[in-house]
């Protein structure tokens, strides 16, 4: 692996809109809830993957961003480096509500399994058959330098051929996913400034 690293592609999902490489790709209904938006966006992909409907909202968000990002892409050797602010709090609260009342104590196994933020990366690994490194960080804002350095390390050390990096934040109806692929091809160099530009 040479030191030439580029941001090859990017996908952002926020405010009922999907952007690819900075350009609007699809917009859902303005007043749609995240659930309804995600369902419509999923149908747009035209994939047969019933497990999508069983995922928690954070995993649905990441699943959609990754599927749009990886369309027509070679998926061999892609590592995952992601972060968010709210961890799995959105699902943690749903689980907590199901065990709040002693008389109505029915925790849902399907909810409980999503009470960790890195589970969304596991869903991506299953979906795209990724068998490389993955890490999920929790921080107040996107840890640009840490993620830039770690992605570069994975590529330079040969532990990955490309790295899918990004921010995957979701809490209730507020969500913002910014995923980007770092690899040896492209025009936009993998620099702190260019990464920060993805969030503008």
């Amino acid at each position: 692996m040479t030191d030439n690293m580029y941001i090859e592609r990017s996908c952002r999902i926020s405010e009922n809109t999907i952007w690819l490489d900075g350009a609007p790709y699809w917009k859902g209904l303005p007043a749609a809830s995240f659930i309804d938006f995600a369902k419509e966006a999923f149908r747009l992909l035209k994939v047969d993957y019933p497990k999508f409907y069983k995922m928690d909202n954070l995993s649905k968000l990441v699943f959609l961003a990754a599927d749009f990002l990886l369309q027509q892409q070679d998926k061999d050797g892609i590592a995952l480096v992601m972060a968010n602010r709210s961890s799995s709090l959105d699902t943690d609260i749903k689980h907590q509500q199901s065990i709040q009342e002693k008389e109505s104590f029915f925790p849902s196994p399907a909810t409980f399994v999503y009470t960790l933020p890195n589970i969304c990366e596991g869903e991506l690994c299953i979906r795209h058959q990724l068998m490389t490194e993955n890490i999920f960080l929790v921080d107040e804002c996107f840890p640009t330098e840490t993620i830039e350095m770690y992605a570069a390390y994975l590529l330079r050390s040969g532990k990955a051929k490309r790295v899918m990096c990004g921010w995957a934040e979701l809490f209730q109806e507020n969500y913002d996913a910014v995923l980007y692929l770092v690899g040896p091809n492209g025009e936009k160099e993998h620099t702190k400034k260019n990464i920060e530009d993805l969030f503008r």
């Binding site: 019933p50 069983k54 029915f106 925790p107 849902s108 196994p109 399907a110 399994v113």
Partner: peptide, 17 residues
């Protein structure tokens, strides 16, 4: 229906609830 192991646990909860 192609249910999985987590679905089986959900069915156990359904019987109880």
């Amino acid at each position: 229906l192609g249910l999985d192991s987590i679905d089986a646990l959900e069915l156990i909860v359904l019987l109880d609830k």
